[in-house]
């Protein structure tokens, strides 16, 4: 098989205390792809991402990133090694301004090249001094994406980035996704199927804690016929 996959997760099992929620999940992500994960509420998508990013500990299974086992690393080491995770709750530091939020990202990654990341989100340039707490949902998502792009990560995991956003913001984000996907690999959890059809190279469907299908056929994705797996 492709052992040179960027991310290779094998038989991952995760539980909260004794509540087993993720069962034998295996996926692969190759460099340059946009992989979308779809699934109903409670399918354990977030749990899956949080485990990959090091915020939860797996019961069993391996997570290889760039060929290295990251299953036991703390979350900050994983982030530094080039795998960023954007949380579902769209939380930005409310007390800090947009500028300070970005500075924190730079402090962690030693990457101070803001022009490169802000090019994708021109709107942020006008909001530099606004407090994170006063941003709209869409602006927050932009800030989070900009923050995670610092340090040129190899893989960005995004947890329902368009959840609860107005349609025009979704269009903006779609454009940004397309541009960002030129320079970095992305894995996105998305419930918005038309958007998925537009950006995805490959789709995994999750149901009740299991990865139930992998859809590689472009046509199938375009026609949204994978809906049957959900």
């Amino acid at each position: 098989m492709t052992s040179n996959a960027l991310l290779k997760v094998t038989d991952l099992n995760v539980s909260y205390n004794k509540l087993h929620v993720l069962f034998n999940a295996s996926i692969e992500v190759n460099k340059g792809e946009v992989v979308v994960i779809v699934g109903r509420n409670g399918a354990a998508k977030t749990t899956f991402f949080r485990t990959i990013a090091g915020f939860l500990k797996q019961d069993s299974g391996t997570i290889l990133f760039k060929g290295k086992d990251i299953g036991n690393l703390p979350a900050y080491d994983i982030a530094i090694s080039g795998l960023k995770y954007i949380h579902q709750d769209k939380h930005v530091f409310a007390d800090l301004s947009v500028k300070e939020n970005l500075e924190l990202g730079s402090y962690a990654t030693k990457d101070y090249n803001w022009d490169r990341v802000l090019e994708h989100f021109p709107k942020l340039k006008t909001l530099m001094d606004r407090k994170g707490g006063n941003l709209s949902g869409g602006e927050r998502q932009m800030l989070l994406m900009a923050q995670s792009l610092l340090g040129t990560p190899d893989l960005i995991l995004m947890d329902e980035p368009t959840e609860g956003l107005a349609p025009h913001f979704i269009d903006d984000l779609k454009a940004a996704f397309k541009k960002i996907s030129q320079e970095t690999t992305m894995m996105i959890i998305e419930q918005n199927l038309p958007l998925t059809a537009e950006v995805a190279d490959r789709v995994y469907a999750m149901k009740e804690g299991k990865v139930v299908a992998e859809i590689t056929e472009k046509k199938e994705i375009q026609a949204l016929t994978f809906e049957k797996y959900l």
Partner: peptide
């Protein structure tokens, strides 16, 4: 900047880690 990282950590430690800061 270190002080801001602490303030951010008070608000949301997970997110500070997510940036790659050694919490």
């Amino acid at each position: 900047i270190f002080g801001r990282a602490i303030r951010a950590g008070i608000e949301n430690p997970d997110q500070v880690q997510g940036l790659g800061i050694n919490i």
